[in-house]
Design a protein around this nucleic acid. Structure first.
Lengths: 235, 235
DNA sequence: TTTCAAAGTGTGGTCTGACCATACTATGTG
DNA sequence: CACATAGTATGGTCAGACCACACTTTGAAA
């Protein structure tokens, strides 16, 4: 009794690749064997191999391109936020997750990252410099709403990166990505947007100042207020 | 100039389904149209439709099964941790993420969840009761290592669920899943396992007691020590 | 009328084989 | 030596087929 429930063909390929990654036989930057070669290796059809590659693609583990040469085919990368953003976004659409939970999680991670002792001082200083540039760019009155949101996202992710934890950074980025459509939809008209953006600029500057003067707890507190306030403005 | 860079065929299907989810035209529990029907709707081949369904499957958004009837085909579910676990696990294998970062994130979320005021008192009480049962089951000396780890994972996820934030709960579950293979490999022999498991049992009981007596800060502190200690024993 | 085995139907899973656009590689020509 | 040209391997897409499976319908036996 209790036979193994017939693993999907593509899962075999996935497991094989995962094992090669763990053992170091495959590493970031390497090319995967061609789809036709993998099909023969595992004695399955190219269609099933393609399933596996497609999964890796969506998960942000490979980048595929046509043509030949060292840059073609499926190349291993590691872009964790791609896969996680996808997942969060879809589950948000399906109402398996709600906005409150995402905002709450953002606050959790951003305030944590703000209070962490940076693992890398040089990087922390670099973040402070780069966020200053972003703040200036967000001052441009010509900036479109979408462009503002993009820079704003970059601002927050950059700050979170100070903690030196790529899981947290990835989650931050994914949460921000997954919710961006919601944000755009919930503040439809420019009249209501103008006063909001003025407050956001002021808050960003205060946050940056707290970081630059090493007032980490204050930075965390300002971040929380900033995020909470902004989402109170949507709908 | 600057033509749209030819979206992949499967992405069209994905976007269409995402839009239907947002608009409520599709909801959890619904069946997706059949692959052949979707292919005709979008004027693409069934192979491309399958790509899209495969992605949704891996992301934990649909469950597929063969046969006919109301339970067959692709049915919309929402199991966010499936997709996120997949992603984290692969990126861990590819060394795009390291164990320290995962442990750090676990501590962040578990201690946060422990200190949160439960949104739902009844659920919190239920969690306390159910974790008590899990603790008893982990006392069984006959328990295999794998079984112990499974129950242990359930214990931690259950505690995290008290906060009533499915993103955090999902992340917890995913982090725990993604790292389980690492844990199993890093403590190979049973001789070194026996003393460890005794300490773990004691720690679990202390954590449970802190929750049961509503000492939330203490629970958080014990959790942090528990997790930190355990990972100091691996490798 | 009721029961229930058998045939029917629609589902995803897999395979084969083909063609395309692309991007690099090798070749041959001036 | 420079450079246009032909060659080759890649992933992307398609069409059409067959399978195992799970439910539905049918129809004959009780």
């Amino acid at each position: 009794m209790s036979i193994t429930p017939a693993p999907r063909a593509y899962q075999v390929v996935l497991e094989s690749i995962e094992a090669d990654l763990r053992s170091g036989k495959l590493a970031i930057g390497d090319q995967l064997p061609g789809e036709r070669a993998l099909a023969e290796q595992h004695q399955i059809s190219r269609a099933s191999v393609r399933d596996a590659i497609r999964v890796l693609d969506v998960l942000g583990l490979v980048r595929t391109s046509t043509g030949s040469g060292p840059n073609s085919g499926a190349v291993i990368i590691s872009n964790p936020s791609a896969g996680i953003s996808h997942a969060l976004r879809m589950h948000l659409a399906a109402k398996g997750i709600n906005v409150r939970e995402i905002v709450e999680s953002r606050i959790l991670m951003e305030t944590w990252a703000a209070q962490m002792n940076p693992r890398n001082q040089a990087h922390a200083q670099q973040v402070i410099d780069r966020t200053a540039v972003l703040i200036m760019r967000m001052d441009d009155p010509q900036l479109s709403r979408d462009a503002f949101h993009r820079i704003d996202a970059e601002f927050h992710v950059l700050l979170a990166s100070m903690a030196g934890n790529s899981v947290v950074e990835t989650m931050m980025e994914s949460l921000r990505n997954s919710i961006s459509q919601y944000v755009s939809e919930s503040i439809p008209d420019d009249e209501s947007w103008q006063p909001i953006v003025r407050v956001l600029r002021r808050q960003h500057k205060a946050i940056h100042h707290a970081f630059a003067t090493n007032q980490r707890e204050r930075a965390a507190q300002l971040l929380e207020e900033h995020i909470t306030w902004f989402y109170s403005q949507t709908r």
